[in-house]
């Protein structure tokens, strides 16, 4: 049985969607590894699925603490958060222009 592979074209599309940039060497390595991983993942296609099996997002029933009440709570020290930002302006995060925004 031969298995499907990720094409270089699809790979480069994914790189763009993932907001990444890669060197040629990095691209070659990562595409090879992705296809090797895919050969493992393809084993799932051979699994005889049991009847009435439903997909699960968690192994156990997550009847946990549950979501908090949706009430606005100001962070006590916003200055600490801003102090960690690469660039700020007037108490806000500063970034370059968004393409086409002007």
């Amino acid at each position: 049985m031969s298995i499907s592979k990720i094409s270089p074209e699809l790979f480069h599309k994914l790189v763009g969607l993932a907001a990444l940039e890669l060197t040629d060497e990095e691209s070659a390595y990562l595409l090879t590894e992705m296809n090797h991983q895919l050969s493992s993942v393809n084993a799932l296609l051979q699994v005889p699925l049991e009847e009435n099996i439903l997909p699960t997002l968690h192994g156990i029933d997550c009847a946990g603490a549950g979501p908090r009440t949706d009430v606005w709570q100001p962070f006590p020290t916003p200055g600490e958060i801003l102090a960690g930002a690469p660039e700020t302006e007037d108490g806000m995060f500063a970034v370059p222009d968004v393409k086409g925004a002007k």
Partner: peptide, 14 residues
């Protein structure tokens, strides 16, 4: 892939 993996995960649990 993703949907199928979630079902196999349920089988592992079972």
């Amino acid at each position: 892939y993703y949907q199928r993996a979630l079902k196999v995960r349920a089988m592992i649990r079972r």
